[in-house]
Amino acid sequence: MTSEPVVETNGLGKSYGRISAVRDLNLTVGPGRITAFLGLNGAGKSTTIRMLLGMIRPTEGSGTVLGRRIDDPAGSLEFRRRVAYVSEDKRLYGYMTVEQIIRFTSSFYPDWRADVVRTLLKQYDLPPDRKIRSLSKGMRTKLALLLALARRPQLLILDEPSEGLDPVGIEDLLQSLVAQCAEGTAVFFSSHQIAEVERVADQVCILHQGRLVLDASLDDLRLSYRQIDMVFPSLPAELQSQLQLEGVESIRTSGHQMSVFASRNADAIMERARDLHAGSIEAAPVGLREIFLQKVKEN
């Protein structure tokens, strides 16, 4: 396996008239990893994904996906074979049955995995004879996922795959992503399910108002983010500025209490608090949910 990124963008942007949906995006997705893409509704996640897939043209910057320039108009067949995409709306041919669309899709892909189809049909509990139009939203998602996974792609891109799935469906989905990653596929997915992302992802990117506000490995986040709660005998006005060290993202005070949200440098911040005669100092790890909220509120 090479360490070449599977996705790389440089100052990528997309504007619609005077409204910019994505701005100055420098995104890197590593091979063989699970990368999660978080952001509020309207943050620009789907726009970014569609640009990566060549479905819409960027208005600024450039990017490559599996070495292919994203603004290359000649969408090669080879490229489409190596990238699988499960879209938000999972548009599929409603008049076909589950079995028909599987046969139809398989004809495009020489590496089609009939064994994967058999396993997933059973695991996802999909009825082969049912027309797609009469499937529930969750079942349609699972079918779209099956069609993507059976292709054995090098890169799997999913836009909100857990939308419309119940908890068991989400569990099945995550298991499939893990299995796919174990086969060497790079997985890039957007999601609102922070708890699941925190468990399964290697890397997390947070997009806010079209800009990338965080791109980090979850292991690094776990090691470096801390909330430090302190109690001071008195809280003079200059105390806050004295604690404004590197890594301090925000400071809140309440009575004699001060709470510092730090993205790194927790040891030095606690040291400073001791020098400033804090009575009690406690540092607690911060979960991805808090990090996410902090990132989208601050910006």
């Binding site: 708890a195 925190e198 468990r199 979850l218 292991d219 776990r222 090691l223 983010y225 801390r226 607690a284 790890p285 911060v286 979960g287 991805l288």
Partner: peptide
């Protein structure tokens, strides 16, 4: 997942 320690 929310503990301040890498999963590995």
């Amino acid at each position: 997942p929310s503990a301040g320690q890498p999963l590995y």
